[in-house]
Design a protein around this nucleic acid. Structure first.
Lengths: 210, 210
DNA sequence: GCAAATTTAAAACAAGTGTTTTAAATGTTT
DNA sequence: AAACATTTAAAACACTTGTTTTAAATTTGC
């Protein structure tokens, strides 16, 4: 972490923490490692954020608030269209409304490359506090999504829909958190991020279809 | 953890560790918690296993050795059949040969209920040591599987096949590690484990198909 | 029965953890 | 200039971690 000379301390801390949380996980990343990497004083984290957990929550908010707003906006749009035309919402449209705002994390490698690993791992986090911080920010959107999916998948029971969504979220989170070090098998990196995202969406929609 | 009065200490430790690793993750589970739950002395882990990491490796071996043997047996069978009949291996047969031996962890709830959470989380583990222990035992089978998949998916490039497999493994690992506390959304538990497994396999095969 | 392996108890070790404190210095706002 | 917020330095705090040690007890194998 260089090139953050003129950033305010609070931002320097968040950027350094993102990188370290992504690389080593929440628990294994120490306050001292974060502040050392950020080039600030150890006490600065507690001064600005109150605690290590609140720092993570601040990072989640920074990324998830705009993403969630866009997810809700697009899901509402799909729901509205279905209501107006009296046709059940299209599965592909529903899933794209949820997936695409999330997967921009995969496309804009600039600042999001570390956070996408954090969020990709959050769902299966062993640490309960971390999981709680994550779920609190994601559950409301999942509820909206589930409601729409139950309309789209007319032949599937409520629990079948929920399981299909779980399979889909598993594929997505696993893809988000995949990076070189982490990869069980080297894949020809000939693929552009946009191609990977499109492959994932197609995979999920085909899998969910009745 | 009760009902392990007459077990040897080594077994008591492994069973207690399974439960705690599944519930709280590797890093967050302490040696003192394991030995207390097992009802044995703190020093017993280092006496029998040498270290905390070796204890985890022993747990992986106990489950993964028979599973891997069955996976290799079935994958070889499919490859042999394809060779004999001069027909490309069938995608569904290939994936079932890999998935079904794994997913028995989901069916036989008896002893495997904790380990399936451990293995489901292993792939996205932040802890590098844990990931290394896991990958060392899984990579050889993945290599065989990838080789067969590249024959089955004739229209897909090498990297497309690898990505499809990654999506599939994400869905699988996420399903394996799912349990009540961990669930972002309550799903009507009306589904039998065998139904869930079948839904997952169908989801994956449909998603991978060309 | 004897020797070896196992198990226990209790304590200590060395290192690392998040957090807090005190005091001084620096920056920003008004 | 004065008042306030920010940042630093350095140390300490209270606690937990995996591992090791020493010594005594118990069990097991031959």
């Amino acid at each position: 972490m260089e090139t953050k000379a003129q950033m305010p301390t609070k931002t320097k801390i968040m950027k350094a923490a993102e990188e370290l949380f992504a690389h080593s996980g929440f628990h294994h990343t120490t306050m001292r490692a974060i502040t050392a990497s950020a080039g600030v004083n150890l006490a600065a984290i507690n001064y600005h954020f109150g605690s290590k957990e609140s720092l993570l929550a601040a990072i989640f908010d920074a990324y998830l608030k705009p993403i969630n707003a866009e997810r809700v906006r697009r899901l509402t749009e799909v729901a509205e269209k279905a209501r107006m035309t009296s046709v059940i919402p299209d599965l592909e449209e529903v899933m794209r409304a949820f997936l695409e705002p999330t997967l921009v994390l995969f496309l804009e490698g600039a600042g999001a490359e570390h956070f996408r690993i954090i969020i990709g791992r959050a769902m299966s986090e062993p640490n309960q506090a971390v999981r709680r911080i994550f779920l609190k920010r994601v559950m409301p959107v999942i509820d909206i999504l589930l409601g729409l999916l139950q309309q789209s998948l007319v032949k599937s029971s409520q629990s079948e829909v929920a399981w299909k969504l779980r399979f889909a979220l598993g594929a997505m989170s696993h893809t988000l958190s995949s990076h070189a070090h982490h990869s069980p098998f080297a894949m020809g990196d000939s693929k552009e991020p946009s191609e990977i995202v499109e492959m994932l969406i197609v995979f999920i929609i085909k899998g969910m279809q009745e």
